[in-house]
Design a protein around this nucleic acid. Structure first.
Lengths: 212, 212
DNA sequence: ACGTGTGAACCGATTCACAGCA
DNA sequence: TGCTGTGAATCGGTTCACACGT
């Protein structure tokens, strides 16, 4: 029932998070049991892919029936590590950072921003979206105290590398980076890049190709 | 010199955009010629991967020497379709949408937001970051007139599917979607999703795994 | 000698085909 | 019969090894 294979595709983890959304939607619709087809209906993922993905972690379904929605939700949360609230620091409270402070999509996944930092003296001490903005010079102090190991980096591109390095030194192990630059960090620090311009270029390229 | 292979990896296109950034940096540093190693030094991409990627489009380098920075920049822009200014509509001027309106990373890649839409009557007609906010009811009119085929979708998740559908009907062929939902659209419409919560979950999963 | 360009080998991920259980 | 779970086949993409031009 729980083979716990050692090597799990990169992409499987990313999809688990989509499955969670789908499951929560089904739960809201009072569906207690759902088949792999039900769960993947509105995702661009095949039902086989779904079952394969889950099979890396164990057998959660009943043959001929499907999956218990609530139960599977819990299991996937456990796998992803978001079964407990995850405390996150946000560094860089510019326009994008402010928008992220009030992003409503985080709580659903037990993600909680608990500290906001900025370098601009005018902003420090101010309250924004309910957060008191701390000076970036207090990074170490606050991060250590709060035991934070996940950060969102939304500082200007010029300071991104420097701040990221500082975060790593303070013990942050995972960074969601919005600056359009490839961060160079110790390899035990995980980085995920959100690159708007690059995404748009990718789309435009597809558009162009599709017309040939 | 220009084999123009028919099938080009998905991932190659995405990396081309990274190469562009690197090339622009090198140009700023007055480097006229650069080797594949120079160009990929600060990217997580091997120099072989770089050369392989370019080889799908032709031979742009000089053996034993490297690549002319300016020339290669132009060639990649041509491949990506960003050699001319690309006009983009932004739909949904909430906190995130506003932040995107003033995002400084777009012009570098010839991406230009030329229209902003919102459904909130209080916002319509107001000027935000230099853009006059149009009613979403004028979507068709403006998009047709401006000949826009690329859009950024930053509306609340509840209305994302509906608005996306409307965009597609108006002739938009590429959508950068910030709503945490999988859009169902005709398959000649390309969608790229930016999903912050999902990215964070992916990071947390890696974090968790790395500790075992 | 140096760095590009590329077929061939390899590797990871997806899809297929079907066995297993309710 | 219906849907899960999974080894085997396949596919797409990356890396290797090396030929080629300057």
């Amino acid at each position: 029932m729980r083979p716990l294979k050692r090597y799990i595709p990169q992409e499987t983890a990313r999809r688990l998070s989509l499955y969670l959304r789908s499951l929560k939607m089904l739960d809201q619709k009072k569906k207690a049991v759902a088949s792999s087809g039900d769960i993947t209906r509105f995702l661009n993922v095949s039902s086989v892919q779904f079952r394969k993905d889950l099979s890396y972690f164990g057998g959660f379904g009943k043959r001929g029936v499907g999956y218990e929605v609530r139960l599977l939700t819990k299991e996937i949360e456990k796998i992803l590590g978001t079964d407990a609230v995850r405390r996150i620091a946000l560094v860089g409270v510019g326009k994008l950072g402010s928008a992220l402070l009030s992003y409503t999509g985080f709580p659903e996944f037990n993600l909680q921003i608990v500290a906001a930092f900025d370098a601009d003296p005018d902003k420090i001490g101010k309250i924004k979206r309910g957060f008191k903005i701390e000076s970036i010079s207090r990074l170490r102090e606050v991060i250590k105290k709060e035991g934070i190991e996940t950060a969102i980096l939304s500082v200007p591109v010029e300071s991104a590398q420097k701040v990221a390095h500082e975060l790593a030194k303070c013990g942050v192990r995972a960074i969601l980076n919005f600056a359009p630059v490839n961060l160079t960090l110790p390899k035990d620090v995980f980085v995920s890049n959100v690159d708007m311009a690059s995404e748009l270029e990718g789309l435009i390229y597809k558009l162009k190709r599709s017309k040939v």
